[in-house]
Design a protein around this nucleic acid. Structure first.
Lengths: 152, 152
DNA sequence: TTTGATGCAAAAGTTTTGCAAGACC
DNA sequence: GGTCTTGCAAAACTTTTGCATCAAA
C-alpha cells in the first residue's frame, strides 16, 4: 500500500513535481523498509544509483515527505535526525529498545498503550495523534561484556 | 536527597574539582526543579547570579553531571538538547505529553509500564535502565482554536 | 511558459575541541 | 605543585537558506 506510485500520485496532487532526484530518493527510502535512515544514508543511497544529487535536495524531499505523513522523524541522540516509514493503513505502533553501550536499536510491536491513551485523553483533555516509547538499557551482548569486565 | 552537597561530594569522589562556575551551575539547575532546561538557560541563569562563565564550561559541566547520572538528556525537537533532574532515590518515571501546535509539555506520573518492562527483560534479554514515553497530540486550548478555525 | 526544483555555497545553529592561563586541593 | 578547569576562539556538525539556473507539467 505504501508504494512508489502512491507517494508519487500524492506528490502530484499536492502540486509538487516528480524529478529524478525525488523519485530516486523515494525508491531508496522504500528499499530500506522499516529501518531508521538518516539523511546522510539517503544521500549515499541515491549517489550509489549513479545520480548526482545535493544534500539540500534530500533535506527538502524528506521535509515534504514528513509533511505529507509518509515518514516520521525519530531522534536516537546520535547527533542527527533519523526517519522511518509510516504505516498508513493502520495505527500500528512500535517501540524502540536502545542499547546504551553499542547503540543497537531493537523494535518491538505492541499496542498495549491504548488503555493509557484513553486515560490521558480523558484526564488531561488531550487529543492524541501519536506516541513514542524508548526503552534504554543494555543488550545481552553488551551486558555479558560488562560483567566480564567487572564494570559497574 | 538530590541536593547540592550530595552532588558536590560525588564530584570530589570522582576526582573532579568544585569551582565557583560548577557550583553555581548546579545551584541554578537545582533551583529549576523538575523543569526541562537547556544549556542556554543554564548559561543565562549562571550569568544572572553575577558570575561570568563561558558556554563551554556549562557544556562540560552538564556532560559530567549526565555521566554521573544526576541529569538526563531529553529531546523535544526544538533544535537543542534539554536536560532534567533525575530522581535518584526511587524509580519514579514520568512521561511527557507534547502539544504539536503550541509545544506545551505536560508531565504525567505513572508507573504502569513496569509490566511491559518485565516482559522486555525476559523476551528480549535486555537490562532496562530507563525509559521515555512521549505522547504527541493537541492540548485542549489548541484543539478548541483548531475547531473554531475549522482546521482539519 | 509557468512554476517549482536543483545545486552550490554560504549561513545558521548547537555542540565540541585546542590551548594557554588560572584555580582548586 | 600537580592536575583539573576555565574561557576564548575556532572548528565540527547537522540543517537551512538565497539565488541563479534548470526542468517538469
Amino acid at each position: 500500500m505504501n508504494d512508489l506510485t502512491q507517494i508519487v500520485d500524492a506528490l502530484r496532487k499536492r502540486g509538487n513535481k516528480v524529478t529524478p532526484q525525488r523519485l530516486t530518493t523515494i525508491e531508496v527510502l522504500l528499499s530500506m523498509g522499516q529501518q531508521h535512515f538518516s539523511v546522510e544514508e539517503l544521500f549515499q543511497g541515491v549517489k550509489q544509483r549513479n545520480l548526482d544529487v545535493g544534500m539540500s535536495t534530500i533535506y527538502r524531499t524528506v521535509q515534504i515527505l514528513e509533511e505529507m505523513g509518509f515518514i516520521t522523524k525519530r531522534n536516537f541522540d546520535d547527533g542527527f535526525a533519523r526517519y522511518e516509514l509510516c504505516e498508513l493503513d493502520e495505527k500500528h505502533w512500535h517501540h524502540h529498545i536502545i542499547c546504551l553501550k553499542c547503540g543497537k536499536v531493537i523494535e518491538m510491536q505492541d499496542d498495549f498503550l491504548e488503555t493509557l491513551e484513553k486515560e490521558i485523553e480523558e484526564k488531561k483533555e488531550f487529543i492524541i495523534i501519536n506516541h513514542e516509547l524508548k526503552v534504554y538499557g543494555y543488550c545481552s551482548d553488551c551486558y555479558k561484556i560488562m560483567k566480564g569486565e567487572k564494570f559497574d
